[in-house]
Amino acid sequence: MKDPSASKRFDTPRSPCFDLSFLILCSSLGGPYVLLIVALLASMIAYTTPAEILAALSTREIRFSVFLSVVSSTLSAIASVWVAVPLGYVMSRYDFWGKKLVDALLDIPIVLPPLVVGLSLLILFQTPPLRWFQQFIPVTYAIPSVIIAQFAVAAAFAVRTMRVTFDQIPTRREEVALTLGCSRGGAFWRVVLPESWRGLLTAFTLAWTRSLGEFGPVLVFSGATRMRTEVLPTTVFLELSVGNLYGAVAVSLLMIVVAAVVLIVVRNWGLERP
């Protein structure tokens, strides 16, 4: 027999007043943060003019900085995806001894203070084998160090993204591919990889953006030498240090625009839940 009290409990529509008050509570608690972000962007935009931005971006140093940032970020993003695809796949599909330890290790570049990552790289490249290697290809305080510093942090984000991507692809499809004649590698290549293109796009763009904004490791491992190892965050730092606030703001605005473009790309074409 139907319980009338239960019926009443579930059939009674929720009070709109209750919903509104709860919405106001949530908005008043969370809203200030949204306002803070908007205020940050607005103040940056209002501080300068398009003419000043163009003037700042046309200087030789900043053009070099933009060029090196784009090239180094692209190379480090490619390297990040290169290691993230196999690592993410192994972490998603296989159980092995020490998996939790490897999982924790992969998070270290994310949680470690950026300066510590840079210092660790600096010390690593002073070990005898890598000092010998640097006799042939200089790394520390040279352009390769910029790419390595960016890669060290960005790859961790790419690995996380690819692991989530592979977690979302059912293993059953690979199993069917195996019965159809594929090897494990063939199933990955023919079935899993084509299906993970959104994750690949997300991993690449996140790694690229992360590389573009990397400052701490680059400062320690590559130095802040103009026209040599200067990337966009270094430029902001150098312009501020000589009191050229307009130059720093112009470069910062450029980085904000790039970040906005990446966000739009990822939101529209990338992984749904990175």
Binding site: R172, R173, E175, T179
Partner: peptide, 21 residues
């Protein structure tokens, strides 16, 4: 023998069609 060499046609419950093909 691995699945690829067993000569079985397999239709799982969820069909597992390949979305990109």
């Amino acid at each position: 023998l691995p699945p690829s060499q067993r000569g079985v046609g397999y239709v799982p419950q969820d069909l597992a069609l390949f979305p990109t093909l």
